[in-house]
């Protein structure tokens, strides 16, 4: 029982990171019908920025907003300068551009911050470990039904729930949210009611990347360091979560992320011999294939004519 609860808590906190990644993917997908393959690397860049802020002595409470603002700007500029011009040509061109961006950002991170996990005393890092948003010492846990749950897990989970609530309000109670929903539903008509669709798409990419940045920072905090391959698996789990929840459903993305986080940890824990730590990523593969074959619109998505 205790073990189960611990695994559940670990799963939920891991799943929270996937949920953040999935949210970013879904927000972009809703607006433009594009799957942003660079989402993980864009988040990683912001995570490195937060690390750098830490090196400069900026506390995490301030560094995180800086990272998210950088993320917003990165997303918005990407949409305007790279995605919009090629989107007119073909979806394939957009796919290639996001892939190129993936490669470019991964190279850029290495070029600026070197090809090794940070913080690292070998390259003169001031910080001992990547700053965590929540207490993360070995003694920081609470006991529920005899299970020791890390405070960090609880904090991450609550953070994601709060963000989901905020996004719910954004989508359902604000003009910006209404405009985003309208563009997602019918971009042509959105123009005809006077919505600046270009602006909406730019802001969507900005928000998505800022959320991704949050996910990257949270994950690096759990992981205690940031490195060049940090987001590869997070991206694929996030994609699996978005697939499971439905690519046009933000709520589905969050739930999908949590479900996958839990499945992953349970599979690795209970089927240790077969799945173990190495094959956890197989869970994502299986989920993606099965969902796409059985119910391509996911749990909460709306079935649409495929746009690609």
């Amino acid at each position: 029982m205790e073990l189960f609860l611990q695994r559940l808590a670990d799963g939920l906190s891991q799943g929270s990171v996937y949920a953040l990644m999935a949210l970013g993917l879904v927000i972009i997908y809703r607006g433009t019908g594009h799957l942003n393959f660079a989402q993980g690397e864009m988040a990683l860049f912001c995570t490195y920025v937060v690390y750098q802020c830490g090196e400069w002595g900026i506390p995490i409470g301030l560094a995180l907003p800086i990272g998210m603002v950088v993320g917003f700007a990165l997303g918005a500029v990407t949409e305007v300068a790279l995605i919009r011009p090629v989107a007119k040509k073909s979806p394939f061109a957009v796919f290639i551009v996001t892939l190129g961006l993936f490669q470019f950002l991964n190279w850029l991170d290495g070029a600026i911050w070197r090809d090794q996990p940070l913080p690292n005393s070998g390259v003169g890092s001031v910080q001992q470990q990547f700053p965590s948003l929540f207490p993360s010492k070995d003694t920081d846990f609470i006991t529920i039904f005899g299970a020791d749950i890390k405070l960090q897990s609880v904090g991450v989970f609550v953070l994601v729930l709060a963000l989901t609530g905020a996004l719910f309000l954004l989508f359902n109670k604000t003009k910006l949210g209404l405009a985003m929903n309208a563009v997602a539903s019918n971009a042509e008509s959105a123009k005809l009611v006077g919505i600046r669709t270009n602006m909406v798409l730019m802001v969507s990419w900005g928000i998505a990347t800022a959320i991704g940045a949050l996910g990257g920072v949270v994950f690096a905090g759990i992981n205690h360091n940031v490195n060049l391959t940090l987001m590869f698996t997070v991206f694929i789990y996030g994609s699996a979560a978005a697939t499971l929840g439905g690519f046009d459903s933000p709520g589905g993305a969050v739930l999908g992320g949590l479900i996958i986080g839990v499945i992953e940890n349970m599979a690795a824990g209970y089927a240790d011999e077969w799945v173990g730590q190495q094959l956890k990523v197989g869970v994502a593969f299986v989920v993606i294939v099965v969902v796409l074959l059985v119910k391509p619109s996911g749990l909460f998505g709306t079935a649409k004519v495929e746009r690609v």
């Binding site: 003009k175 209404l178 405009a179 309208a182 997602a184 539903s185 019918n186 959105a190 009611v193």
Partner: peptide
């Protein structure tokens, strides 16, 4: 017609007033 099929009737009207 070009309505927003995924949005509620009320949201469609609100979208009309967005400007």
């Amino acid at each position: 017609r070009g309505t927003f099929p995924e949005l509620s009737v009320e949201d469609n009207l609100r979208a009309g007033a967005i400007t």
